[in-house]
Design a protein around this nucleic acid. Structure first.
Length: 297
DNA sequence: GATGAGCGC
C-alpha cells in the first residue's frame, strides 16, 4: 500500500470551502472525490485499487492498494477449473465482474416438467389412443407395481391382479376343503383364505393352484434388434394389465431375434392391443401384432 | 421371415 499526497484539482476548491472541513470533521464529503478505480486482476493475479480520501488535514490523498488474488486458489484449483473461469458468462451473471464471485444464486426462471398436474388423477389406460399418444413423453413416476407393471396407481402389495402372480409355496398353505369355511369364519388361528380358495374363485381342479399365464398371448413380430422387454411392456401396458413380456434372444449372439410375446390378464385388452398396434410404426419398423398360437409342449 | 425356457427327483 502506498499513500501519495496529491494536489487538489484546481476546480474543486472553488466549490469547496476548505475551512469548513475542520468543522465538519467526520462529515461524509467523499462524493467530492473521484470514483474508486479497480484494475485487474491481471494474468498474474495482481489487482490494483485506486481510491481517494481526505486525510485529517483536509488534503486529498490517493490510496493505491495492490493485492495479489488467486495466489492460494492457483495452488488448489485444477487446471480445468481455471479454464472454466475464462468462459464467457451468461444469464444473470453476464454483468458480473470477472472473478468477483465464483458462485451466485440464480434468479432465472427454470421450468420443470411434471408427469402430471399435482393433485390430478393418474391417467386411466382405458382410452388406448390417448395413452399411446403419451408414450415416450417420459416423466418419473415412483410408484410402480411389480406384479402388473402399472405405474402411479398402487403398490405391489395392493395389486388387484396379484393373485395371478406365481406364489411362493409357503403362502399356498391351503386347508382341506371342509376346513375352509371354518377358517373363514374366524374360529381358527387365521382368518386368511388364499384368493384361490375363496368363494367364487375359479377352480383349476389340479393340485397346483398356481395358474400358468399363457392365456391371452399376443405375438409381436418385426421388432427392431434393440427392442427389449421393458420397451414392449411400456408399449402394451397402456391397454391393460400385462402378466408377461418376452423377447426372443439368440442364445449365441445375445441379440434379439425380432419377435416377442405379451400376455394380458384380460382377453379384451389383448384384442384391443392387436387392433391398435398391428401395423403401428415403432423404431422405424412396422409392428405385426397377432394372437399367438399356443406354445408346443 | 419369424411362434419363447427350464429344474431333472
Amino acid at each position: 500500500m502506498a499513500i501519495d499526497k496529491t494536489d487538489p484539482s484546481p476546480q474543486q476548491p472553488s466549490k469547496l470551502r476548505w475551512g469548513e472541513l475542520d468543522e465538519d470533521d467526520g462529515e461524509d464529503l467523499d462524493f467530492l472525490l473521484p470514483p474508486k478505480q479497480v484494475h485487474g486482476p491481471d494474468e498474474n493475479g495482481i489487482k490494483r485499487v485506486i481510491e481517494y480520501k481526505f486525510n485529517e488535514d483536509g488534503n486529498r490523498v490517493k490510496i493505491t492498494t495492490t493485492t495479489r488474488v488467486r495466489k492460494l486458489a492457483k495452488a488448489r484449483v485444477s487446471k480445468r477449473a481455471m479454464e472454466r473461469r475464462g468462459w464467457a458468462k451468461f444469464g444473470d451473471a453476464v454483468h458480473e465482474d470477472v472473478g468477483s464471485r465464483l458462485t451466485m444464486v440464480s434468479t432465472e426462471e427454470i421450468l420443470l416438467e411434471r408427469p402430471r398436474a399435482p393433485g390430478s388423477k393418474p391417467e386411466e389406460p382405458k382410452v388406448a389412443g390417448d395413452s399411446l399418444a403419451q408414450l415416450g413423453k417420459g416423466g418419473a413416476i415412483l410408484m410402480v407395481c411389480r406384479t402388473c407393471g402399472k405405474k402411479g396407481d398402487h403398490w405391489t402389495s395392493r395389486c388387484p391382479y396379484k393373485d395371478l402372480a406365481p406364489q411362493t409355496e409357503a403362502f399356498v398353505d391351503k386347508p382341506a376343503a371342509s376346513e375352509t369355511s371354518a377358517a373363514a369364519a374366524g374360529s381358527g388361528k387365521s382368518t386368511y383364505v388364499p384368493p384361490s380358495m375363496r368363494a367364487g374363485a375359479e377352480r383349476t381342479g389340479g393340485s397346483d393352484m398356481r395358474r400358468r399365464n399363457d392365456e391371452n398371448s399376443v405375438r409381436v413380430t418385426n421388432l427392431s434388434e434393440d427392442t427389449r422387454e421393458p420397451d414392449l411392456l411400456e408399449l402394451f401396458r397402456t391397454f391393460g394389465p400385462v402378466t408377461r413380456v418376452y423377447v426372443a434372444i439368440d442364445q449365441k449372439t445375445g441379440v434379439s431375434r425380432g419377435f416377442g410375446f405379451v400376455n394380458f390378464v384380460n382377453r379384451e385388452d389383448a384384442q384391443r392391443a392387436i387392433n391398435k398396434l398391428n401395423g403401428y410404426g415403432y423404431d422405424n419398423l412396422i409392428l405385426r401384432v397377432e394372437w399367438a398360437t399356443p406354445r408346443a409342449n
